[in-house]
Each structure stands twice: as C-alpha cells, then as structure tokens.
C-alpha cells in the first residue's frame, strides 16, 4: 500500500500511466504474438535507442531548468563525425568514434559555457546554435551518405545470447550511469540550480561549473545516441537529427518533467518518449485495419493529435498530483506535531 502511494506521488506517474495505456493499445493492435516476438522487440529498440538517449540527455538539462533545442543537431554532429573522421584523419574506426564522442561532449559544454557566461535565454541560445552546428555538419558532409563498415551495423543488430539486443545493453548502461551519477554532489547541485539558481549560488554552489558539467553529461548521452544512429542506419546525415530537439522536450513534459526544473526522474523521460513511440506505431496499425487507403499524412495527423491530448492530460494530472502531495505532507506534519 505504501509502495502504491509512493508510486502515485512520483513525478513519473502520469508518464507511467500514459505509457501503459499506449503500450496496452499497441500490444492489442499488433497482436500479442507478433509483439512479443524477439525480432519485433529488437527492431523497436534498434530504431528508437537514439531518440531515447537524446530524451534522457534533454531531461538532465530540464532538471536544471534549462532546455536545448540544438540537441538534435548535436546528434547529427556525432553522426557525421563518426562517419567521416576515420577517413578524414586516417585513424582506426574505434578512435574516430571515440573522437566523435569527445567532440560532441565539448560542443555541448560550449553550449553550457555560452549560457553561463553570456546569459542568453537557453531557448534562443540553442536556436542560434542550431545554425552553427548545421554549418559545421554541412562542412564535414554536405550530402547524406558516406560509408560505415557493415560489421558495425551487424554488431549493433546482433542479439547477444540469442535474446538480448545490443541496443538494450547500451540503454541499460546509460541508465546505470545516470543512477551512479545521482549519488554524486554534482547531480544534487544540478537539482538545486533547477529549484532556484540564485539560492543555489548563495549556498556556495559553483553554478557555472555545475551547468557546464551537466551540459557535458548531456553531450555524452547525445554523442552515444549519434553513434547508435550511425550504427543503426549505417549512413551519415547532416540535418535529419534536428527534429529530435523539440521532440525530446515534449517527450519529457509528457513524462512529467517540469519545465521550471528542480525535480523529476529520468524515468519520466523514458515513459514520455515510449508514449510517443507507441502512439505513433499504434496509429499506423489502426489505419491498416480501416477499410480504404490512407496516406502517412493521416498517420502523422492522428499521432500528433493524440500526443497533444496526452500532453494536456499529463499536465492536468501533474497539477492534481501536486495538490495530493501537499495534502500528504501537511497530514504528515500534523501527525508529527501531535506525537
């Protein structure tokens, strides 16, 4: 019972409910046999690992009360670097990929530095950064294409021990990394900045260092997402990633991450993006069942409409939850006063 209350008061609860609803709908529409097929699950994870990782990165920034719409462009940055660095520098592929990862982290830290020192609102700064990153991406690789060793693609697609897709391992490691990070003071400071930056500064937190490091961590996740994208699609594309920027923000909000920052769990991000993915795939299934031929335009319209409804529902839910939480806390305080 206590567990249940704890879950109900968790900020991820709205996202959890929405995800469960969409998941059940998807399983029913797809048919349980087809859904629980190992190949189906593997292809789901394979395709969506990049956007899931990007959403996690966005969530870290949102915990701090910041957003970064250039995060999608950063994914493409890692993508084109991974494809082109090995041939450009004549280094082995693993080194090229490592360099791509490090450079993406540096790029993200640059965002953090600009936000900290120039104090431009994050929305506008990251909008301007999209142009800068797009410029760099186009300079590295003007057209989509490029060559990626098929062995990498095969390794990414492979099922470890016959049932575990590589992408799931990557996601699990990413989650573990965040869980470990959560024990550090850095993450405590990050949440403190999200709650109130001025107070955080006043209580002795080095806000600039925290912000830059958080951006670097987000950059790490974005970089890994870019590498996964490269492995999954075996091609470099300078601009396709850009749409992930706004999509990851809305996924976080559906999952229950507050825009103002200060609290939230990474599961919110996971639930939010899963909801979007399942809705998208369910809508396609529904249209397949309907008589007549429908274009993908109809799919897109209904997907976005359902996500809009989910968004409104999530926010109303969070507000009700806040009231409950307040009631819970005041009841607890009263009880303590009586003792």
């Amino acid at each position: 019972m206590k567990r249940l209350t704890k879950l109900r008061l968790s900020p991820a609860y709205s996202g959890f409910l929405l995800m469960m609803i969409s998941l059940v709908a998807y399983i029913i529409l797809r048919g349980p046999a087809a859904f629980f097929n190992i190949n189906n699950l593997a292809s789901l994870f394979k395709n969506y690992t990049p956007i899931i990782l990007v959403t996690m990165a966005q969530a870290f920034l949102m915990f701090m009360g910041y957003i970064d719409i250039s995060i999608g462009a950063q994914l493409s940055f890692a993508n084109v670097l991974a494809v082109n660095l090995p041939t450009m520098l004549g280094v082995p592929v693993w080194l090229g990929w490592l360099l791509a990862l490090v450079l993406t982290m540096l790029l993200a830290s640059l965002n953090g530095l600009i936000i900290s020192y120039l104090r431009i609102p994050a929305l506008l700064e990251s909008f301007a950064m999209i142009f800068v990153i797009r410029g760099i991406n186009l300079a590295i690789q003007p057209k989509p294409g490029g060559h990626v060793d098929p062995a990498i693609n095969r390794a990414y697609d492979r099922l470890l021990f016959g049932f575990l897709p590589t992408s799931v391992v990557i996601l699990a490691v990413a989650l573990l990394v965040w869980m470990l990070l959560k024990r550090t003071t850095l993450v405590n400071h990050l949440f403190a900045i999200g709650a109130n930056e001025r107070n955080a500064y006043a209580s002795g937190i080095n806000t600039i260092r925290t912000k830059v490091l958080t951006y670097a961590i987000a950059g790490l996740f974005t970089g890994v997402a870019g590498l996964c994208y490269t492995a999954a699609y075996a091609t470099g594309n300078p601009i396709t990633g850009e749409i992930y920027g706004l999509q990851s923000i809305s996924a976080c909000i559906i999952g229950g991450v507050p825009m103002a920052g200060g609290f939230g769990t990474v599961f919110s991000a996971l639930f939010g993006i899963s909801f979007q993915i399942f809705v998208k795939d369910s809508v396609v299934q529904v249209f397949k069942m309907l008589p007549g031929v429908y274009t993908t335009y109809w799919h897109n319209l209904f997907t976005d409409f359902i996500i809009l409804v989910g968004l409104v529902a999530a926010i109303f839910f969070v507000r009700r939850q806040d009231k409950h939480r307040l009631a819970e806390v005041s009841a607890m305080l009263e009880k303590r006063g009586n003792d």
């Binding site: 120039l118 104090r119 431009i120 950064m129 410029g135 186009l138 003007p142």
Partner: peptide, 25 residues
Amino acid sequence: DSIRNLIMGIILIALLSLYNRERSV
C-alpha cells in the same frame, strides 16, 4: 551553405548576448 549557416548562428549569438541577457545570479 555551411559557411552561411555558421555566420548566421554566430551573429545571432552575438546579437542576443548584446542585449537580451538574463540577470546575473
């Protein structure tokens, strides 16, 4: 195209930092 985007982005950042800064903590 690439240089044009790059210049656009940098000028935008410069413009924004010139007069839409948030208050210092």
